[in-house]
Design a protein around this nucleic acid. Structure first.
Length: 273
DNA sequence: AAAACCCGCAACCGCCCGACG
DNA sequence: TCGTCGGGCGGTTGCGGGTTT
């Protein structure tokens, strides 16, 4: 007995989403929250697979998403996390508020991989390329010529020689310093754990629950859900941060606060993950 | 100006895993 | 304990836009 398809293939639309479909999906999620994705297409009046709806929402329509290229610091964080976690994009994405696994995966494949290769680093193992040359009896203990990543095996040695020091601060954005996150060994193990709560409470995107003051006042100004949805769709075009709304930064900050809080929790031995 | 090529990203596919009856 | 189901994940594809020839 074969596996049941995730949705009825007949009559299911594929390909790029139209603005109208986005509209319907946003409308539905904002009204009902995220529930059973399989039921979403029917309830929302979409001829789409439930999976497709979930992907569209999580990768594109979610209001807390950052748009645009990853900053230097984000990129560095991705590299470091990849060195530790491998291709576990969702885990990596969980450390970068506002970024999706798909986005990070794409960025990795199209940008970071090339950068690392250019720097002489194997993007898979994070060890120096041309290892054969360096891996001789005489110099295999010498530090690898790595300018940007931690080399596997010495991952705990995030000391002053950490490549994170190379993180650019030119962007002027608040830095998400991986080093700072890894100062505490317990936190590090927590970071590598699989059971931590998500950094961002997805249901907080439901407009009625959004607690950022400035967005509340804006939402309150909408005459109808249609206006609200239109605002959201416009936001997708430009990136919500382009509007100068800081509420999503607040979400990010609260995520980092969560990290710190949990760090303190886990400093108690019996609460380690 | 047009064709060929390249690149980036959105979306799809299929597998895996946990929850639940 | 087993089977089913839904959600999630990672790999891959295909399209559209940009660049080069």
């Amino acid at each position: 007995m074969g596996r049941q398809p995730c949705c009825d293939k007949l009559g299911v639309k594929k390909g790029p989403w139209t603005a109208e479909e986005d509209n319907k999906l946003i409308n539905f999620i904002l009204t009902n929250g995220q529930c059973c994705w399989r039921a979403v297409p029917k309830l929302a009046g979409l001829r789409r697979c439930g999976k497709s709806c979930r992907l569209r929402w999580t990768n594109y329509l979610r209001p807390d998403l950052k748009r645009g290229l990853l900053s230097e610091s984000e990129e560095q964080l991705v590299i470091d996390l990849h060195a530790r976690l491998g291709n576990r994009w969702s885990k990596i994405a969980a450390r970068l508020p506002g970024r999706t696994d798909n986005e990070i995966k794409n960025h990795w494949n199209t940008h970071i991989k090339k950068k690392l290769i250019k720097r002489g680093i194997d993007p898979v193992t994070h060890e120096p390329l041309q290892k054969d040359h360096q891996d001789t009896e005489t110099n295999n203990h010498s530090p690898p010529v790595v300018e940007s990543t931690n080399v596997t095996g010495s991952s705990e040695e995030t000391s002053s020689s950490s490549p994170h020091e190379n993180c650019s601060t030119l962007s002027g954005e608040p830095e998400i310093s991986f080093e700072s996150l890894c100062e505490d060994e317990k936190l590090l193990s927590y970071l590598l754990g699989d059971d931590e709560p998500p950094l961002v409470d997805t249901m907080s995107w439901e407009l009625p629950n959004i607690n950022a003051q400035n967005i509340n006042s804006d939402i309150g100004a909408f005459a109808s859900w249609d206006d609200c949805v239109r605002w959201l769709l416009d936001g997708q075009d430009f990136g919500v941060h382009d509007f100068g709304f800081d509420c999503f930064d607040e979400i990010e900050m609260s995520a980092l606060d969560t990290l710190e809080t949990n760090n303190k929790q886990y400093s108690s031995p019996d609460q380690q993950p």
